[in-house]
Every structure is written in C-alpha cells, then in structure tokens.
C-alpha cells in the first residue's frame, strides 16, 4: 500500500516546510486563529488606550501598545505552531507530529482505533474547517488533527475507519 501522499487534490497541503509524504494543516486554521487573536486583542488595546487617555493623561495611553505587542507576538507564535502540525498516513499507522517548543509525535496503528470523530463548531464551519479526533482504548492517546477541509476530514475518517476494520484488534 502506498504511504501518505494520498491527500493531494484537495489542496490542503500547507505551504513550504512540510517534508514530502507529510500533510500540513490548511491555511484556514491559521487564518481562524489569527482572526480570533485580533478580535480579542485589538479592541482590548483600543479600550485600554481610550480609558488611560481619558483618566490618566495622554502619556499613559502608550501602555495600550502592550496588547498590540502581545498580538504581534501571538501572530508569529500561531504561525510557527501552525507550521509544526502535520500528519502522515502510512500503510499500517497514522503519524501525527506537532509542537514547536514542546514537540510531540504520535503513532496510532490503524487496528487500534476504536472510534474516529469529526467535529466542527460554528466558528470552524464559518472558516470551512473540521477537526478529526482518533480514540483508542487508551485515554492517554492524544491523536487529533485540529482543522482540515471538511472533504479531507471526511475522506480521512472513511479511510481510517476502513483501515481500522481491516486491521481490527481489541484490547
């Protein structure tokens, strides 16, 4: 059976930096997270600036730059975190790799999957995303892919379920 590279046509492969055979997260995940960051921090900066300017003097309004700096830092962090997420479908198991400072790489053999879950909240639906979560008999197994194009999420779910049935093994 071929290893990985099955997900090409959906165009869900992220930008450069993803090694061959691996699939990154779609750009939409990054956009959604950055939008969320701005939606919270820019109004906070404005409110802080206005309040400080009114009650403490215009010079104090400089402190409104703090949330903005936080937003800029978060912008970069989100980008790095987004680039770190990748997964790879191999012949007999699924590999998920993630994390920048705290790296984690998980292998789940298809036969051990008990349940494949596709979730999509209202916000994720707006950005056209869906998350895939794999459950094994061990609760500690933390195998999830936070955001995928819905068609890719469904393809992955069906493929994983199919492979899981073919290689099924219990506890």
């Amino acid at each position: 059976m071929e290893t990985g590279t099955a997900a090409g046509p959906e165009g869900s492969t992220g930008e450069s930096g993803v090694p061959s055979g691996w699939t990154g997260l779609p750009r939409g995940v990054l956009t959604m997270r950055r939008m969320l960051l701005l939606v919270w921090l820019v109004p906070a900066a404005v409110a802080l600036g206005v309040l400080l300017g009114l009650f403490a003097g215009p010079a104090w309004a400089v402190f409104a730059a703090l949330p903005l700096a936080l937003a800029a830092w978060g912008w970069v962090l989100l980008g790095r975190n987004w680039r770190s997420w990748r997964y790879r479908e191999r012949a007999d198991d699924l590999l998920i790799s993630r994390g920048v400072l705290w790296r984690e790489e998980t292998v789940v053999p298809y036969g051990r999957m008990q349940l494949v879950e596709v979730t999509s909240g209202p916000l994720e639906r707006y950005f056209g995303l869906a998350g895939v979560q794999l459950h094994t008999a061990a609760a500690a197994t933390d195998a999830r892919i936070p955001g995928l194009v819905p068609s890719e999420a469904e393809r992955l779910r069906d493929r994983l379920t199919e492979l899981g049935e073919a290689r099924s093994a219990g506890l």
Partner: peptide, 20 residues
C-alpha cells in the same frame, strides 16, 4: 500486543541536550 499508541515528547531543554 497491548500497546495502543506510541508517542515521543521532547521539551525545549531536552531538545537542546538531544534527548526525548
């Protein structure tokens, strides 16, 4: 036969020292 999943974790200090 009882292994359900395998994970490798590496913190920043561990990566600096090349262990996981």
């Amino acid at each position: 036969a009882k292994v359900q999943s395998v994970r490798v974790r590496q913190g920043p200090w561990e990566r600096f020292k090349g262990v996981a």
